[in-house]
């Protein structure tokens, strides 16, 4: 290690390190501090106990858990199937077009995608109104009934997010040597057997990456129920998800400690998943 060089190393990382401290570490520590204090006095786990005891907390956990379950299962099954199917297309322009079509909704995120889906889910204007009517839905309110929400949010998230995963899986499938695929074919393996015994094992690393990322992101559910609540006059409850509840604590009840307690719990989940993946997964190692 060269002392002169290493000094410049610090200069080069200084700006980024400042931002990392200010908007990564410091907010985490401050949220931790708030979650264990009330009006500046240490109260142990009181804030957490209070939040656990809140009648809205457990339903919010259940809502988020159910949505994450639906989303993970559909994401893993459909993304893998679609990637393998698209990868099997021999006609080059057709394969490229398919990937492009799947991918393009990824441009539409946040509030914009929820607004678009408000239209799609409203039988009076929907592009698939015939389908919605056939399923017995006459108005937006019917479609977004609380029981349907995990499916509704799954569909929205899948629409915006699946395409980029399909593209990633497709890239990973390109790493399967052509010779191996060819040999399997000569040995008489059909497309389904090839997919199951050769392609799927090559994808496991990426599937677990997708699963971990999506699980962490799913627990953060906020903008979808927030905007649906607004559009339906709270028929979609404004305390549907955990982040919404944390938001209500801070903005409606002026209870920053309770809000911090919920944020800390969500942050622990996200950090835990990310750390497990970094230390066990080896996907991002370069050294």
């Amino acid at each position: 290690m060269n002392a002169g060089q290493s000094r410049y190393g610090y200069v080069f990382v200084s700006g980024y390190t400042l931002l990392l401290l200010a908007f990564g570490l410091l907010p985490t520590l401050y949220a931790l501090y708030l979650s264990f204090t009330r009006n500046g006095a240490f109260v142990g786990v009181d804030n957490f106990v209070r939040v656990f005891g809140d009648y809205r907390f457990l339903p919010a956990v259940m809502h988020v858990a159910l949505y994450v379950l639906f989303w993970l299962v559909s994401l893993i099954v459909l993304v893998v199937v679609l990637a393998i199917v698209v990868h099997g297309i021999r006609v080059r322009w057709l394969g490229n077009t398919a990937r492009f079509l799947f991918y393009i909704p990824g441009a539409i995120a946040g509030a914009s995608s929820v607004l678009l889906w408000l239209f799609v889910l409203d039988p009076s204007v929907s592009p698939v109104s015939a389908l919605l009517h056939a399923m017995g839905y006459e108005s937006l309110i019917n479609v977004v009934a609380v029981g349907n929400l995990p499916v509704v949010f799954t569909v929205i998230a899948f629409w915006a997010g699946a395409g980029s995963w399909i593209v990633i899986m497709y890239g990973a499938l390109n790493n399967v040597p052509v010779e191996v695929m060819e040999a399997a074919r000569i040995d008489g393996a059909g497309p389904v057997q090839t997919a199951w015994h050769i392609q799927l094992p090559m994808l496991t690393k990426w599937i677990s990456y997708m699963g971990v990322m999506s699980l962490a992101a799913g627990t953060q559910l906020f903008v979808e129920p927030k905007i649906l609540a607004q559009a339906t006059k709270n028929i979609v409850p404004e305390d549907y998800s955990l982040n919404q509840l944390a938001y209500l604590y801070a903005f409606r009840q002026n209870d920053f400690s309770g809000s911090a307690a919920i944020s800390v719990m969500l942050l622990v989940v996200a950090l835990g998943l990310s750390a497990i993946f970094i230390f066990r997964g080896k996907l991002f190692e370069r050294d």
Binding site: F23, T28, Y30, A31, A250
Partner: peptide, 14 residues
């Protein structure tokens, strides 16, 4: 790798 929403409320509090 953590979703960027995970830090939003802590950043707001800060």
């Amino acid at each position: 790798l953590i979703p960027n929403t995970a830090l939003v409320l802590p950043i707001f509090l800060e």
